[in-house]
Amino acid sequence: MMPQAKPAAAAKRPLTYQEVWGRAGIYAFLGVLALFFLLPLYVMLVTSFKSMDEIRLGLIFSLPQQFTVDAWVKAWTSACTGLECTGLRVGFGNSVKILLPSVVFSILLGALNGYALSFWKVKGANVLFACLLLGSFIPYQVFIYPLVRVYAQTGIYGSLPGIVLTHVIFGMPVMTLLFRNYYSGLPVELFKAARIDGAGFWKIFIAIILPMSVPIAIVAVIMQVTAIWNDFLLGLVFAGRENLPMTVQLNNIVNTTTGERAYNVNMAATVLTSLVPLAVYLLSGRWFVRGIASGAVKG
């Protein structure tokens, strides 16, 4: 993506006095805000490398005097949840097990919905879509009881398919929205030409539309990975004892109600739990903006 011509940077002539100040102002603004945004991450990281003795001194912004990774090791391998002291390891595996199928299915379904909504004539589809969008505003809590009932009757309550289906259901509004708007921005001539060539619904979807969906799919992956990985409530209710995600374990470790709070372990556990979505953002941040720019959210 080539930078566009912008007012401040258009010319190659030496900057005027005023422009130098302007640039300085821009960097000052961004710098100060960057510090504000980084402050929590800084506090989490320095705290996680301190010993409890140091934390008790109460200087949360100071660098660790004695750098130790004990808290990280403990959070990963031996922090306790009730009688089981296995750390976050188990939950990490469970979260991955939940994440992969949930992301794949919800994105495929979102793409399919978006494609059918924007290229095909289906009566009442827009009404369905409107209901879906409105549904996304309702607190999850309201859904829990009826879903538990229905899942129990179909025998998927407390199982991996159960939690994956739940994530697909709750991810559907935003996923459908993303793909529908992205496809609305694609040239309709492509579609018409394929139709004239006799290509059917699935053939157009797989051969033409999906290959063009990469930019928006990246946006969708980022959003779903974040949402599903960070989910606590649905995992707690629907995943079953064998598949409890990492966030549930994090909650168990952080929210113990008695004893001295091991802030360093809590912080290390928190950062560990956030690593997957953070990594996804760091690795694909540029694609995020690019994907959106490619028409993802145009109306």
């Binding site: 949840t81 009730g82 009688l83 089981e84 829990i144 009881y145 538990v148 009932r149 899942y151 129990a152 309550y157 407390g158 707690l236 209710v237 549930v248 909650n251 168990n252 470790i253 952080v254 929210n255 113990t256 109600t257």
Partner: peptide
């Protein structure tokens, strides 16, 4: 073990209903 009394109780009740 589920941290938090109300979380644990609703987990138990959901399991019963389920």
């Amino acid at each position: 073990a589920v941290a938090g009394g109300s979380a644990a109780r609703s987990a138990a009740i959901n399991r019963i209903i389920g």
